[in-house]
């Protein structure tokens, strides 16, 4: 007879159940949702790099005064 008792006493929740209620759980669940988030994040990062990046455009030097 196993006297260790149930791993999860009645009424308790295991780790997976707890995580599943987390709003960010979708990030790690499933093979499709993670790539969607990743793709979206890459696009936002690209836009942010363009908007906040350093200017490297060149033009001839304006030498007035």
């Amino acid at each position: 007879m196993d006297d260790r008792g149930p791993i999860h006493p009645p009424g308790s929740r295991n780790v997976r159940d707890v995580l599943a209620t987390d709003p960010l759980f979708f990030l790690v669940r499933g093979a499709v949702r993670l790539p969607i988030v990743l793709g979206f994040a890459v696009a936002l990062a690209a836009i942010a790099m363009i908007v906040f990046g350093a200017s490297s455009e060149s033009r001839f030097i304006y030498t007035d005064f």
Partner: peptide, 14 residues
């Protein structure tokens, strides 16, 4: 498959 989904989402978002 995950790579293509990510690439498609990134391209569509942009």
């Amino acid at each position: 498959r995950a790579f293509f989904v990510a690439a498609f989402v990134a391209a569509f978002t942009l």
